[in-house]
């Protein structure tokens, strides 16, 4: 039965504008970084075009592959966390905003399969976006002719982006639970914004590796110098967050009142 549930969850995305919207938003990120790099590389021409070359040169960045990968990781990590929250909020919350949850929950299908299938769809959607936009980013980097490229650098850079994206996914079930609990899409997105701010705050304290929403900022170097590896404690916190969020979502669907 899980196969049918999964298939129908993918069917529900037919013609959904949200899929294209998330692709468009994420695809803008490498373009934005590329523009920034171009401004750094050619501040005179950028100033002629009315772009703020001074600010870009003050940032102290270089238009090189290492900087490009660093920026990609940073933007995929933080922007990606928010985008993933939107995806999960959409998948779970739309059942309430479209008032279809009541139809879904009174079917001869164990309710936990819907939670599992929606998280699986979110994972596939998320990874498809990452792969597509990474391909775009690489193409842009080569098209710009950025210096200091090496295969080792590319492997490390891509691995960092994928690690940050995967870790972000471990936080997704909590967003799903908030969507089911609040019966909509707004609360989980608001929750993610607040957690992002808190993660930034905690990330500057000694608690960073223990607060789930600080771990991605810590990994990508948003709140301090990027760390090479996370501590075992951080992985335990992330795994615990994933398990807690998944369990809470399933229990909410199974046992709570599901009025709309």
């Amino acid at each position: 039965m899980f196969g049918q549930v999964l298939a129908t969850e993918f069917m529900k995305l037919h013609r959904a504008k949200a899929t294209w919207a998330t692709l468009a938003v994420l695809a803008m990120m490498p373009l934005g970084i590329a523009l920034f790099m171009w401004i750094v590389r050619e501040p005179g021409r950028a100033a002629q075009l009315g772009l703020v070359g001074t600010k870009a040169s003050l940032a102290g960045l270089e238009a090189t592959w290492p900087e490009y990968f660093y920026m990609l990781t940073l933007i995929f990590g933080i922007g990606g966390m928010l985008l993933l929250a939107f995806i999960v909020a959409y998948l779970f919350g739309r059942e309430y905003s479209d008032a279809t949850a009541k139809n879904m929950l009174a079917l001869p299908v164990a309710r936990h399969w819907f939670a599992v299938a929606k998280l699986a769809v979110a994972a596939v959607w998320w990874m498809a976006l990452i792969v597509l936009v990474l391909a775009e980013a690489m193409a842009i980097g080569f098209a710009m002719g950025l210096p200091k490229f090496s295969a080792e650098l590319a492997a490390t850079g891509l691995a960092n982006v994928l690690l940050a994206a995967s870790i972000s996914f471990l936080l997704a079930p909590v967003v799903a639970w908030i969507a089911v609990l609040s019966r909509g899409e707004v609360a989980p997105i608001a929750f993610s914004l607040v957690m992002l701010a808190l993660g930034n705050l905690f990330g500057r304290t000694g608690w960073a590796e223990w607060f789930p929403y600080s771990i991605v900022p810590l990994l990508i170097g948003m709140v301090a110098d990027p760390v090479d590896t996370l501590t075992a404690g951080s992985y335990v916190v992330l795994a615990g967050t994933f398990m807690a969020g998944t369990t809470a979502t399933i229990l909410q669907l199974r046992f709570a009142d599901n009025a709309q």
Partner: peptide, 18 residues
Amino acid sequence: TAYPNLTVRENLDIQRRL
């Protein structure tokens, strides 16, 4: 209620599968 982005037939196919 139904999934607004899906056709009548697609909405019913979801019900059929499940």
